[in-house]
Design a protein around this nucleic acid. Structure first.
Lengths: 233, 233
DNA sequence: TAGATTGTTAATCGATTAACAATC
DNA sequence: TAGATTGTTAATCGATTAACAATC
């Protein structure tokens, strides 16, 4: 898995989507599928599907297509979903709590072992059986519990320092919901979920589609009121 | 904004990040910046910055660089952040509630006006002043309140039908947290936040970096226990 | 003016699509 | 065998980087 040719980020980002569609097919008791059929379902070209999959091996068979169960399982292994992952949530606010309460993660093997926060009012509490600890206990906890992933859901002012500490203590990956870019050693992986950025790109596209110049579309119902600018999120 | 040459998705996705960095510079009372300086901060090439910005106009000045406040404001206008947006949350579960409680959206002008759910136990309740309504009331509400964006945070089995209805009723954009691809008319914009997919790509990268073959890295502490496969999220 | 830095064209790189021989 | 469909090479398309004349 290591010495082979590097897989492009575009391909990696599509893998979970393939996995999802194959899981759905499996649910519908469909046993085989061709790249052409799958391409129609997924709205991508058959060529791209074959190219993507062939990065990892020849999973299909000429004249037949792909065996759904087999391919589903292969992608599962490729994504590393055939093992458990220990995770912690750093920052017990809205999003942190929502993620702890999201039971589907556990079913997939993504196990949240603990939450860390600085707020004495929530330290000691339990969220769906997961205890909230003082951040002061984080170094010791990580070293004793082989934590793979830290989920960062804290204010951006604190995220950078915390991420540095976590990297030092051996966390391999950060799932970063804090609205800031982290600076970590290259052997620590970061995946950003910048919700505000995501929403902004949606708004851009809405404005582009429904812009004033275009008489073809419904009238934009924009209000010219200037919102208060936010400085810390 | 409409008849001009189409902006590439890659550029659009970078706009919020430019906006964020310029906001930070403004905070630090930095009045001007060159593409070279900004490139060092953002870890992208100066060439890319100049190319990106020039899609929208010549905001800089030779020999000087860019005026931070001016450029910040121009990007704000490009992204359409100089107006308010009315949004509703469809699905009052963990994530839906967390988003309602996230006060920074409102400060930016992203206003959540109402939550809709089918659960009688939460209908009538109020989350940070935002009322939870019965989904039966959604059509009427949307038609009377010029809703721009629907935030979908419901189980995937229900999301597709709801998205269809919302499109019919005139919602312009969907911010989709449901783990399914929506099929909507082309004048309705969809931005997906597939949290499970995002986490999976992180895990892929962790496995690639810390794979068994590699003796250079820490030992992977994987457990060979097979998690229960989840069918509905 | 001289130095700095943009805006923009050209070159390179990477990702997607097309085509087709191999083969089940 | 004949038809279908893969795996893979080649062609195209798009995005990034480099280079530099224009100009503040």
């Amino acid at each position: 898995m290591d010495s082979e040719k590097r897989i492009s980020p575009a391909v990696i980002n599509r893998l979970p989507r393939y996995y999802r569609y194959l899981g759905d097919l499996l649910e519908s008791d469909i046993t085989r599928i061709s790249s052409k059929e799958l391409s129609a379902k997924m709205n991508i070209t058959a060529s791209q599907i074959r190219q993507d999959l062939n990065n990892f091996g020849g999973f299909g068979q000429q004249g037949y297509g792909y065996n759904v169960e087999y391919l589903h399982n292969e992608i599962k292994k490729i994504l590393g979903l055939d093992r458990l992952y220990n995770m912690i949530v750093v920052g017990g606010g809205n999003i942190g709590q929502a993620l702890v309460n999201y039971t589907n993660f556990e079913k997939r093997g993504f196990v949240i072992k603990a939450v860390f926060d600085i707020n004495p009012r929530i330290i000691g509490m339990t969220i769906r059986g997961v205890e909230v600890h003082d951040v002061d206990k984080m170094e010791e906890y990580i070293k004793n519990n082989s934590i793979d992933v830290a989920i960062l859901t804290l204010p951006r002012s604190k995220a950078v320092k915390v991420a540095n500490d976590l990297a030092k203590w051996g966390v391999k990956g950060m799932w970063n919901f804090s609205h800031v870019d982290l600076q970590v050693p290259e052997d620590v992986l970061v995946e950003n979920v910048h919700l505000t950025d995501s929403l902004m790109t949606l708004l851009y596209k809405i404005n582009e589609m429904y812009s004033e110049e275009s008489e073809l579309h419904h009238l934009a119902n924009g209000l010219p009121i200037k919102p208060i600018v936010d400085l810390e999120d």
